[in-house]
Computed example of a mutant assay.
Amino acid sequence: YLKGVQRFDAAEIPQPENLSQTLLDLMGSPNLGSRDWITSQYDQTVRTNTLVGPGSDAAVVRVKGTRRALAMTSDCNHRWCYLDPRAGAAHAVAEAARNLSCSGARPLGVTDCLNFGNPENPEIMWQFREAIRGMGDACRALGVPVVSGNVSFYNETRGQAIHPAPVVAMVGLLEDASTRLESGFPSAGLTLLLLGDAGEPSIAASEYLAQIHGREAGAPPPLDLEMEKRLGELLRGLAGRRLLASAHDCSDGGLAVTLAECCLVGPVAVGAHIRLPEYERADAALFGEASGRVLVAVVPAQEADVAETARQAGVPCTRLGTTNESGRVRIEGPGDHGLVDLALDDLQRAWSAALPEMLE
């Protein structure tokens, strides 16, 4: 089936006339909307040890009586795993490790929950085999062992199997809990940098393509595991030196969704203004997806130090813009061409209402 679903030509996809509305639609979609409707219904404090709760790239829990803390995250992009099971499963491991590094934690180990359809179907069994191979590729490259897991087969309704979903849960360690990072921008007046490749990502296999255009097609983006390893080491080193104010993995929904999330999930809502590098398609620059990208906020006085450290690590570093007190998210293209201009209140309403409107 891969030949059919991976066949994709971006030129056939029309670009939206209103990119601001497109961002609102994505923020209010089931896969990207706030999970607060769920997480607010259970105890998040873990015997008063929770340092970072739901909403960041990883939860962080202190190890009482020590300076240490454990960071925890889980990941799986079922669409990528359907379009390429081996690549999709490898991406799940890489993103989990990246999320831990965004919190300042060193990945320690993986457990998994491998969810598939009927293994008596050769196609499903092939998906299962390829997913395991992909997880193995990434775990070996990143030096993270799989310590436990389980398998759930026969997930079907009327003979229709779910997309393969090898969910990866990963635990990491912070030697000093006070160096932990969160996703949200903590204040105005910070410089925003993109760590990782700033080239134009693809809309193939993206959340944007599925939600806005109703298509699941194309192949997942390329995954450079050596770059992922360097990026993780860089993030943990910068966090340990207290050079970052926040860090957020750029994944589902692309850079525009990542920026909006960072503006909304901090201690207070913070505005932002960024300018994108050259691009061929505005929708790809905003909502296209790629691996190995992290949006970080830094104090302006430390921007040069962060950029030089990234250069020495072999990780691209691109200045995008700043945080501010405007109460808006503004994204421009080259030549001050306006692409997105939205009030934080409108983004918050769309993002917060995603699950309640669907479930209540």
Rank of each mutant, 00 (worst) to 15 (best):
H78I: 13
R47I: 14
W80L: 08
F153V: 03
L26V: 13
G55L: 15
C102R: 02
G104A: 10
Q44N: 11
C102D: 06
Y42K: 12
H91E: 10
D57S: 08
A71T: 12
G143N: 03
A89L: 14
E120G: 08
A96K: 10
T73Y: 02
M72K: 10
P85R: 05
N155F: 06
M72F: 14
R133I: 09
D43C: 09
A96L: 08
I124S: 04
A94E: 12
N77W: 15
N121C: 00
S101F: 07
T111G: 07
R35H: 13
P54Y: 02
A89R: 15
P54W: 00
A58L: 09
V63S: 07
V61K: 03
E123W: 07
N77Y: 14
D137Q: 08
A131T: 05
D112N: 04
R133W: 09
W80Y: 08
E120D: 05
Q127P: 01
T45M: 14
G55R: 14
A87Q: 15
S103T: 10
S34N: 07
V52F: 06
G55W: 15
T48N: 15
T66C: 12
I38M: 10
Y154P: 00
T39D: 03
G33T: 13
L114C: 08
D43V: 06
R86F: 08
L32W: 14
S40I: 04
P119F: 03
V110C: 09
A89G: 11
G117P: 01
A71C: 13
S34H: 09
S103G: 07
R67E: 06
T39Q: 08
N77T: 11
D75L: 14
R98S: 15
V63M: 13
Y42R: 07
A97C: 06
E123Q: 11
R106V: 00
L142I: 09
S29I: 04
A138I: 02
N121R: 04
V63H: 12
P30V: 02
F153D: 00
I124D: 00
N150H: 04
A131F: 08
S34M: 10
V61D: 05
L70G: 08
T66G: 11
C76N: 00
R158Q: 00
W80V: 01
G109I: 08
N121V: 02
T50F: 08
V46D: 14
H91L: 06
